[in-house]
């Protein structure tokens, strides 16, 4: 699966102006709404928070993947945010979170949801990539790291 198919430049927030986990989640849901990803902001926020209440989505190494299957989403929707200072996410390894990928997908739509989270976690869980992402200045630069240009070739589907 290709991350690039779900993460346009517009869905990247290079500097998330949040001071807490809750604020970060709310800002990101609102960003999704601005991208016309949601049919109901309130429902989306409720679903994200209720998943977060079950157990932290801070999977370690500075990465958090808040997500939910929500009626408010149209298909699989994602936004990526960077927080240079780091947020307390009560993560599994206790470290502050710098990269947050929020994913919402409609409960009835088949296909990747957790698989997308795993793909992005795999990409971000790499020190050189994290370093490059911290150095990047614009959304476009981040996008180029997360979604490298498609390799073209007959035998490379």
């Amino acid at each position: 699966m290709r991350i690039a198919d779900y993460l346009p430049i517009g869905a990247i927030m290079p500097n998330l102006p949040a001071d807490s986990k809750l604020e970060a989640l709310q800002l990101m849901v609102r960003a999704m709404d601005k991208l016309m990803y949601l049919s109901d902001v309130g429902v989306a926020e409720r679903d994200i928070l209720s998943r977060e209440a079950k157990m932290t989505t801070g999977i370690g190494h500075g990465i958090a993947v808040p997500h939910a299957r929500s009626e408010a989403a149209k298909g699989l929707q994602a936004v990526l945010a960077r927080h240079a200072a780091g947020l307390d996410w009560a993560a599994l390894d206790g470290r502050p979170v710098h990269f947050i990928v929020m994913v919402l997908s409609h409960p009835d739509s088949p296909g990747p949801h957790l698989q997308f989270l795993a793909a992005i976690a795999r990409l971000l869980n790499d020190p050189p990539v994290q370093h490059a992402l911290m150095q990047a200045e614009t959304a476009r630069q981040i996008h180029q790291i997360v979604c490298p240009p498609k390799r073209k070739g007959l035998f490379r589907p």
């Binding site: 157990m55 999977i59 993947v65 795993a118 793909a119 976690a121 795999r122 869980n125």
Partner: peptide, 9 residues
């Protein structure tokens, strides 16, 4: 990562 994310859920 696939294993971890699915199990975590």
């Amino acid at each position: 990562e696939v294993v971890r994310v699915f199990v975590l859920e």
